[in-house]
Amino acid sequence: MSLSPTIAPPHPDPRPPAFRLPPGSCDTHCHIFGPNSLYPYVPERPYTPPDAPLAMFRALHARLGVERAVIVNATPHGRDNRVVTDAIAQSNGRYKGIANVDESFSDADLAALNAAGIKGCRFTFLPRLGALPDMDVFGRIMRRIAPLEWHVDLYLPAVGLEPFLPMLESLPVPYVIDHMGVPDAAAGIDQTGFQILLRLFERDRKCWVKLTCPERITAAGAPFHDAAPFARRLIEIDADRVLWGTDWPHPNVKLMPDDGDLVDLIPLFAPTAELQRKLLVDNPTRLFGFKV
């Protein structure tokens, strides 16, 4: 039996947002948890989520007006990616996925994930989510996923980014930095870690950034307006390499957000219809290979 702590469930009744998402909008960072009876959580998980299954996932997106999604397999499911690939199989082309993989996966295993709608793999550089990646293993996996035209999704806080800059810029695949590098909104956009991320984003066109998790960044609390300057600065640098997502069902947050608030931040991030379409439709279509 795991002794990992049980985390809070998502908001039970998120409000419909005032902002209307454009057709084809994609939530590029969200999770499905369980149900544990069908997709068991691994014993070595760092936390235990309440079940947040596909039906809840669909209901949330219907309320928000989201039409497409990229499901990121989270640590409680370990290297079992069925919770993602099964959802993709039922989505009629509306879902793609990010898998958890290691060196036990053969080339045939990776090809099968690719055929099932997986478009990348994820690595976390956050000690609370487990041991940091073995960088030799990481490098070998990057070389193996390159022929699949995958990217790598990185939970790598900007405060710890600098030692990894040479590795990132030499990667053979595109990479996506989660959650704007989780800066501290109280420290402003001039804080050192975020400035390092901005410079990397400006010079390395393999780098993408997810404008996600204002609830992890905020110092002021809901509705998280103090996260908007960080997102706007990234969009100012390159509106063609930014992505939006909810991070539903919001594992390990101190303040559980109302997902309606997260949607209503979008016009503060991207103030014009053109920028909104890039963020929500065009960029996800290009990176994840959705049908136009």
Rank of each mutant, 00 (worst) to 15 (best):
Glu149Ile: 12
Leu255Lys: 13
His29Gly: 04
Gly34Arg: 07
Cys121Ile: 10
Phe290Arg: 02
Trp244Gly: 06
Lys210Glu: 13
Pro163Gly: 02
Leu171Thr: 08
Pro14Glu: 04
Leu198Met: 09
Glu274Ile: 03
Ala146Thr: 10
Lys206Met: 08
Glu274Ala: 15
Pro214Cys: 05
Thr85Cys: 08
Pro49Phe: 07
Leu132Ala: 10
Lys96Val: 03
Val209Arg: 10
Ala112His: 15
Ile177Gln: 02
Met167Cys: 06
Gln195Trp: 10
Arg122Trp: 07
Arg143Ile: 01
Cys121Met: 13
Lys210Asn: 09
Ile145Lys: 11
Ala55Phe: 10
Phe123His: 14
Gly117Glu: 07
Ala99His: 10
Gly34His: 09
Leu287Met: 11
Val101Thr: 06
Asn114His: 15
Asn114Ser: 14
Leu262Glu: 09
Ile32Gly: 03
Cys213Lys: 09
Asn36Pro: 00
Tyr39Thr: 00
Phe123Met: 15
Asp136Arg: 13
Asp247Leu: 12
Glu169His: 03
Pro9Arg: 13
Thr246Gln: 08
Leu148Gln: 00
Gly221Ile: 06
Gly245Pro: 05
Asp261Ile: 07
Pro183Tyr: 10
Asp204Lys: 12
Asp184Phe: 15
Asn100Tyr: 07
Val242Asn: 07
Tyr41Glu: 08
Ile266Val: 15
Asp109Lys: 03
His29Met: 08
Asp86Ser: 05
Arg241Gly: 07
Gly117Ile: 07
Leu156Val: 08
Ile98Ala: 10
Val253Thr: 15
Met256His: 04
Tyr175Ser: 07
Thr124Asp: 13
Ile237Pro: 07
Val83Trp: 08
Tyr41Gln: 00
Glu274Thr: 10
Ala99Thr: 01
Pro284Glu: 02
Asp86His: 13
Glu162Gly: 00
Asp153Ser: 11
Ile196Met: 12
Leu200Pro: 00
Val159His: 12
Ala116Lys: 05
Pro35Asn: 00
Leu200Tyr: 06
Phe224Thr: 06
Phe230His: 06
Ala52His: 11
His31Phe: 02
Pro257Val: 02
Asn36Leu: 14
Leu211Met: 11
Ala185Pro: 03
His11Pro: 01
Ala18Tyr: 06
Tyr95Asn: 01
Asn114Trp: 08
His11Trp: 01
Pro76Gly: 09
Ala273Arg: 11
Thr85Gly: 12
Thr75Gln: 14
Gly93Val: 13
Arg15Gly: 01
Ala228Gln: 03
Cys30His: 14
Leu234Asp: 04
Pro23Met: 03
Asn114Leu: 01
Asn252Met: 07
Gln191Val: 05
Val292Thr: 14
Pro46Ile: 00
Leu110Arg: 12
Asp238Gly: 08
Ser37Lys: 15
Glu236Cys: 06
Pro251Asp: 10
Arg233Tyr: 11
Pro53Gly: 15
Asn252Phe: 01
Ser25Val: 03
Gly130Glu: 02
